[in-house]
């Protein structure tokens, strides 16, 4: 398999946060712990304002700094490109959190360890979609092989709210808003 990635349609997202909640339900996360988070942005000025919502999880980067900087090797990249973590090895040093510009890794206070989006790998094995994808009422999130996503949705990978793509080379394709 190649490299798994997400597609996100900024134009269609209404910021309902259904993906965020579906992810919490799937991963049994507490308040303050979000593997996928919807960020809200407002701009413009009356009477021409705008509002954007950006939903982001781990982008399973090509150059995952979290993997590079993880001292234990708990954070690792699988063959299918999913950046996964080995819970039993994590020391809770938070180095991965200092290495990710997308807030991918999340510190679980109670366990003293970090966890993150694992692409719902268990669901993928059952031929089901990741929880966030199947939750989206606007069909604004998709996933798949990153090359196929690019073919399907175009090659744009960034929007103005993203950090420099070169830092980690995220595997996300984004549909921009025409404004």
């Amino acid at each position: 398999m190649g490299q798994m990635g997400f597609y996100y349609d900024l134009e269609t997202c209404i910021g309902c946060k259904g993906c965020q909640i579906a992810c919490k339900d799937k991963n049994d996360l507490k308040t303050g712990e979000l593997f996928r988070e919807v960020h809200d942005f407002e701009g413009g000025s009356f009477p021409s304002p705008y509002v954007d919502h950006v939903t982001i999880s781990c982008n399973h980067c090509d150059k995952p700094k979290c993997v590079e900087n993880c001292p234990t090797g708990a954070m690792h990249k699988r063959e299918d490109g999913i950046v996964d973590f080995d819970h039993s090895k994590c020391v809770g040093c938070k180095m991965c959190m200092w290495s990710c510009p997308y807030d991918g890794p999340v510190y679980l206070k109670e366990e003293g360890k970090v966890a993150k989006c694992d692409f719902c790998k268990d669901l993928l094995e059952n031929n089901e979609d990741p929880a966030c994808v199947s939750a989206c009422t606007m069909r604004a999130i998709d996933y798949g092989d990153i090359e196929e996503l690019k073919e399907k949705y175009g090659t744009n990978q960034s929007i103005r709210y993203f950090p420099d793509l070169d830092i980690t080379k995220p595997n996300i394709v984004v549909k921009q808003k025409s404004r």
């Binding site: 900087n69 234990t72 020391v91 180095m95």
Partner: peptide
């Protein structure tokens, strides 16, 4: 004391190949 799971501290040297934190330790 910075570590969340001190019991795993042993692993913290495993990835010295790329991790400066492992090298530091």
């Amino acid at each position: 004391f910075h570590l969340g799971s001190i019991s795993n501290a042993f692993y913290a040297l495993s990835n010295a190949g790329s991790s400066w934190l492992a090298r530091e330790i």
